[in-house]
Computed example of a mutant assay.
Amino acid sequence: MIIDAHQHFWQLDRGDYGWLTPELEPLYRDFMPDDLAPHLDRHGIDGTILVQAAPTPAETEFLLEIAQRTPFVLGVVGWTDFSAASAPDDIARLAKHPKLVGLRPMIQDIADDDWMLRPDLAPAFDAMTRHGLTFDALVLPRHLSRMRQLLSRHPNLRTVIDHAAKPEIATGQFDKWANDMSALAKESRAFCKLSGLLTEAGNDWTTADVAPYVAHVLESFGPERLVWGSDWPVLTLAASYGQWIEIAQSLISCDVSRAKIFGPNAVDLYQIPKT
């Protein structure tokens, strides 16, 4: 079983994608299941995890509706307001939906780098743990030290670092990111997503540019805590679906490791029922 553990859908006329502007011309249109299905068929992908792209409850409901009628969507990572007094109840309600597998605050867009450490968010993180949901951490390299603190407070919070924390590959920033990722992997049980790297590598990327970053997360998290995702359609700013899956597979030389990273690990991370 091969799973794409990170993809998006959106419909522009819904109006809540603040980041999605006409300047992002290749992405400024609707992307729906019929657009992705040919790529999944061509590359033998059995299922996907559909991830939120707007910080609104309405978008989460929109994605859950898509998941209900789209067999290849195995789970949805939605959004809710972790800072709301009602957050524990909101999380409990969402957790009842059979396709809701996780939640994702859009931390990269929050001005306060210490936001995740606010005491008033603890009830939301506790509710995530209580209801068995996965916390998708959309963070940047500067957030990694905070992530270590957060996970020390909530050691049982099932967590995945989206896009390997978006290392600054285009400018060759490696050492600080690498050290922080190693420490996070050692000190916590967090997973890491092998996704989003090509869009961080600049317009003239080569496989050699991303290879050290792939090698480092593989070494740090091991083949048991790494999951592959496409980040489609954002991926299309840098490469095709086929290019990314081919590069990722080529950079993981061990067949056993590759088999885990491209499927079973996502089942474990998101607690997808095994059929």
Rank of each mutant, 00 (worst) to 15 (best):
M1F: 12
I3Y: 05
A5M: 11
A5E: 02
Q7P: 00
H8V: 01
H8K: 04
H8Y: 07
W10P: 00
Q11A: 09
D13F: 10
G15L: 07
G15D: 10
G15I: 11
Y17E: 15
T21Y: 03
P26W: 04
P26L: 01
R29M: 12
F31A: 11
D35N: 14
L40Y: 14
D41C: 03
G44E: 05
I45F: 05
I45V: 15
G47D: 11
G47T: 10
G47Y: 12
T48H: 05
I49W: 06
L50A: 03
E59T: 04
T60S: 13
F62N: 03
F62G: 00
E65L: 02
I66V: 15
A67P: 06
T70K: 04
P71R: 15
F72A: 03
V73C: 08
L74T: 05
L74S: 10
G78A: 08
G78W: 01
G78P: 06
W79L: 06
D81A: 12
F82E: 01
S86K: 06
A87I: 07
P88L: 02
I91S: 00
A92H: 02
A92Y: 04
R93H: 06
R93K: 10
A95F: 08
H97W: 02
R104Q: 09
P105E: 11
I107Q: 07
Q108R: 10
I110E: 13
D112W: 15
W115D: 02
W115A: 06
P119K: 13
D126N: 13
A127T: 00
A127P: 00
T129R: 03
L133T: 09
T134Q: 07
T134R: 14
F135Q: 05
F135P: 00
L138P: 02
V139F: 09
L140R: 15
L140P: 01
R142A: 13
L144P: 06
S145F: 03
R148H: 15
L150F: 04
L150T: 04
L151F: 02
R153S: 15
H154Q: 09
P155E: 05
T159P: 08
I169S: 01
I169K: 00
G172Y: 01
Q173E: 12
K176D: 14
D180W: 08
M181K: 04
S182Q: 14
A185S: 15
K186N: 13
E187K: 09
S188E: 10
S188H: 12
S188L: 11
L194W: 08
L198I: 04
E200Q: 11
G202N: 07
D204Q: 08
D204E: 09
T206K: 10
A208W: 09
D209K: 08
A211E: 15
P212V: 01
Y213E: 00
A215F: 01
A215V: 03
H216P: 03
E219A: 14
S220D: 08
P223K: 10
S230R: 02
T236I: 11
L237W: 03
Y241G: 03
Q243V: 07
I245G: 03
I245T: 07
E246A: 13
A248Y: 04
Q249F: 02
Q249R: 14
I252N: 00
D255H: 08
S257W: 15
R258M: 07
A259C: 06
F262I: 02
P264R: 09
N265G: 05
V267L: 10
V267Q: 14
V267C: 12
Y270W: 13
Y270M: 09
I272C: 10
P273A: 11
T275W: 15
